[in-house]
Design a protein around this nucleic acid. Structure first.
Lengths: 112, 112
DNA sequence: TTCATCAGTTACCATTTTGTAACCGGCAAA
DNA sequence: TTTGCCGGTTACAAAATGGTAACTGATGAA
């Protein structure tokens, strides 16, 4: 992604290397509610196209944050879930969710 | 930015509307260490061009997260600092910094 | 026999973001 | 007199990102 050689901002920047992607935090946060199929994620986050969703999921898998389980069935089925590594981000998600609830509830209209 | 009408991911998505920009979290986190001049920020985050830095700072100011103080001097001086609203994000930064220290310290090489 | 299902992939194009270089003003130092 | 300082802004070009539509393969249902 980018490059950060700084000691102060280093750890935060390092975290962003994992969850800094456009949709990654939202995807991961949705997966904290349990194992989900590709179609479920796509339905839950309609703003993201399937192409980009595929890309983001692949990157998250490569980074070890999510686990992809593919069932060899005839209409294919794929389930995504958080790895323990991905679950270790829960503190970040919790704080983000808290802040969103406390500071932005309803204030900011969401475009479409 | 985008659109999230979802109740589950809503608060997290709302938070991302504020800090989801490419460099915003890093800038804000650097400002938690105190008031900084434009040039200091630019020097601290060399990966970002001055043009984009200007843009991100302007957005952060519009969103009420940072305060911009301009001194009418001859070589101009501008100082940026967190507003109380910006400081309210400290929990998010703390968790991100913690996670980065615990899980990525040194593992991931930073490109240049 | 044709259609729908699911989780993609691919090609192609449009949009967005980003970088680079030049420029600004007004004072002080060389 | 020219140069550097600082915090930008602007125009232009390049790169990254994004969307859309068509296609895949195997099966079961109509």
């Amino acid at each position: 992604m980018a490059h950060f050689n700084d000691d102060i901002i280093g750890p935060v920047a390092a975290t962003l290397e994992y969850i800094g992607g456009r949709w990654k935090t939202v995807i991961l946060y949705y997966l904290t509610t349990g194992k989900r199929r590709f179609g479920e994620i796509a339905a839950r986050i309609p703003a993201i196209s399937r192409k980009v969703l595929t890309q983001q999921l692949k990157e998250l898998e490569v980074d070890g944050l999510i686990f992809r389980e593919e069932f060899k069935e005839k209409p294919p089925r794929v389930e995504y879930s958080l790895t323990p590594f991905g679950e270790s981000l829960s503190g970040v998600f919790r704080e983000m969710s808290l802040w969103g609830k406390e500071h932005v509830s309803g204030k900011r209209q969401v475009a479409s």
